[in-house]
Write a protein that binds this DNA or RNA. Structure first.
Lengths: 194, 194
DNA sequence: TGGATATCGAAACGTACAGTATCGTAATCT
DNA sequence: AGATTACGATACTGTACGTTTCGATATCCA
């Protein structure tokens, strides 16, 4: 009844179960991390049989990728200046790191991606998608003449989010929102003396 | 005979076996990656019993951390200018990414670190150590007046290696050495128009 | 020299979990 | 009503972890 009955006969897949599985995955990721996440644990937490999970996802990793896709990303901000856009977006994004499993899931998936081309194929578009508000802000800045027209925007984006990535992956200290202002100013202005 | 006979009685641990285990770990890491690395595989490759491994390392992760510690890091460069130091060090470092398991081990350990305080305690000093040539170069630059005296050197270092980390973890494309010049110039000079 | 001790490689073991298959039941389509 | 498909539960196979035991071996100390 709730299905766009274009499919074949038989009992339709439960959308409820689908969502319960994704929710359980995120909850357990936050609790135990990726490497200790078990499909059996997800099934138990979701109140679902293992077969129901494997009927939808071929293995643990794609499941985590899809669950990850439901986590919040950059929220587009258009303040009229690049510096304003960046500060607003980064500050909001950093707050999400303290409210979601983002900070643990991201490194886990990045690590798997390196040796699993299938995961990379799944994961890469998700990452590009999440990055797009940042790229849009850079493009607006270029259109306004705030940055040189021949700027390598990908590199610029990497420069801006780079310090966050480094701290996320390597130092593990919680990333303070007050880091944002000096970060943006240093990235935009450069390190060197004028 | 080869031991500093300060220890207790009994057969001393074989330094040969120790090194064979570390070598086998690095070799297998390069071949199959971290998540497919098995201790049994390491034991077989090293020609060693599993007990010999577990007698020295409590589990797979600390073993990999120690093996990782044997991989090359930044090589100190002192060219007289910050831009020269950075370009030289980054270029040399990027080449190592294509010759060692660094590119796969680094994300794997970073991912584990997030949910394993014991690993973090082991891993953090190693990371700091590897970073020191970069920090030294920044300190020299500050002493020379190339960068403002109140510069946050940690943040500056993160800004410089950030784009490499982002590409390593997220885009997975091989990192081209020719990236180094624009990267260093953008980090030092800033993105914005002058 | 000889006993005590700790390591060696090898192998067996218990546990945990991935992923598959099968069960009887429930929901939907024709 | 009958066919079809998903459901949760459960049993199963295979793999690998981490532990333990084994007889053999190397070193220390008296």
């Amino acid at each position: 009844m709730n299905k766009a009955s274009g499919g074949s006969a038989g009992r339709p897949r439960s959308e409820e179960a689908h969502q319960a599985i994704l929710d359980a995955t995120l909850a357990l990721l936050a609790e135990v991390g990726f490497s200790s996440l078990t499909v059996e644990g997800v099934a138990a937490r979701a109140g679902v049989g293992k077969a129901t999970i494997y009927r939808r996802w071929p293995s643990k990793v794609p499941l985590v990728v899809e669950a990850f896709g439901g986590l919040p990303a950059f929220e587009e901000a258009d303040t009229g200046s690049l510096v304003g856009d960046l500060k607003a977006m980064l500050r909001a994004y950093l707050e999400l790191f303290n409210e979601t499993p983002l900070a643990t899931v991201l490194p886990a998936l990045a690590s798997e991606r390196a040796h699993d081309p299938a995961l990379a194929a799944l994961f890469n578009p998700v990452l590009r998608q999440r990055r797009s508000p940042l790229m849009n802000a850079l493009e607006r800045a270029r259109a306004r003449g705030e940055i040189p027209p021949d700027t390598d925007l990908e590199l610029a984006a990497d420069l801006i989010v780079g310090p966050i990535a480094v701290r996320l992956f390597f130092t593990g200290r919680r990333i303070q929102p007050k880091l944002v202002d000096p970060l943006v100013e240093m990235a935009l202005g450069g390190i060197q003396k004028r």
